[in-house]
Amino acid sequence: MSLLIKNEIGKIFGKKSSWIYMVIILIAVVLGGILQKNFTEEPSKNWREETQARVNQLEQDLKTAPEEEKEWMMADLQQQQKYLDENINPNAMSNWHFMNQTVYGITTLVTLFAVIVSSAIVSSEFSDGTIKQLLIRPHERWAILLSKYLSAVIYSLLLVIVLIVSGYIAGSLIFGTGEFTAKFFEFTLEGGRKIAEIGPQFFLKVLYYLPSLLVFITISFMLSTLFKSQALAVGIGIFVLFLSSTLGGLIVMLAEKYTWAKFLIFPHMDLTVYALQDKILEDVTLPISLLTLSVYYVIFMLLTFTIFQKRDVSI
């Protein structure tokens, strides 16, 4: 099996596109850092004095403000006071702030490239006419298919590593190194804010991102075994990727009325929600989402290997 995996990884890196994807991630990280540096205020050493002055000004303005403005002014006042109470610089910026804000957002590119590679890894054998030569080797079909799947997973994880390492280096060079456990306010999906530690929060998001990435790889890999056309497999894989985010939000709203909607896969595809809040819906927590994804994962894998075992490889 190890030789099969090594051979498949060699095939992946034998294509220029596989290296180009890594270069694009590096460029995206550097450009993201430069843009954030140019459009972000420089952290002030006197931020406490400035924040206290803001609090004092808001307290004065509240006395004469129109009723329709008092609500947002009070919310701003409370937030400014929280910065002081928790000793959190609202304009703080370091490599870990960059990692949590910008680098994590680039995981969308990682998922896209993982989907493209996974969608093409089997279908390209049909398109190139090399599937027969592949299957005449003294290996079971399931072993050949598993080696391709594991190779796609390994390559995708390498993309994640490239993103994290390049993000840390670029962030350190552009913004300087900061405290790993520095506190900051993270926005929740409901519009509130929670106090978190910047470094651990970033890695928590990455940890929650990995199961979703694995499911996208699995769906794309299944499509790669279903279609002999590489273009069709990749196209549908990308379509599913972008459709999932849209459907996820719609089905979450639908699930508030219909219980069955909670068991569809799309609301559970973005587990990073749990880095911000404990529930997606009133009774949908992380264990339920993981269980739901696990069930779909097993179904996708069974379909993939069953179809490939019985597939007519005539070209």
Rank of each mutant, 00 (worst) to 15 (best):
L3G: 09
I5D: 08
K6I: 09
I12M: 00
K15C: 05
I34P: 10
N38C: 06
L58M: 14
Q60D: 15
L62K: 00
L62I: 06
E67T: 07
E67L: 12
E67R: 03
Q80T: 08
Q81S: 08
L84F: 10
E86Q: 14
P90S: 13
W96Q: 00
G105I: 05
L109G: 08
V115F: 03
I136K: 01
H139E: 11
L146D: 04
Y149F: 15
L159I: 01
V160N: 11
V162A: 13
S166K: 13
I169N: 01
G171D: 09
G176M: 04
E186F: 05
A196P: 00
Q201S: 04
F202L: 04
P211G: 10
L214A: 15
I219C: 13
F221G: 04
L223V: 01
S224G: 07
S224V: 08
S224L: 04
K228L: 00
K228F: 02
Q230H: 13
A233R: 06
A233T: 00
F239D: 02
L241A: 02
S244Y: 11
G248Y: 02
L254F: 09
F266N: 12
P267L: 00
L271K: 00
L271I: 01
Y274P: 06
D278L: 05
S289V: 10
L291V: 15
L293H: 10
V295H: 10
F300A: 03
R311V: 06
D312L: 03
V313S: 03
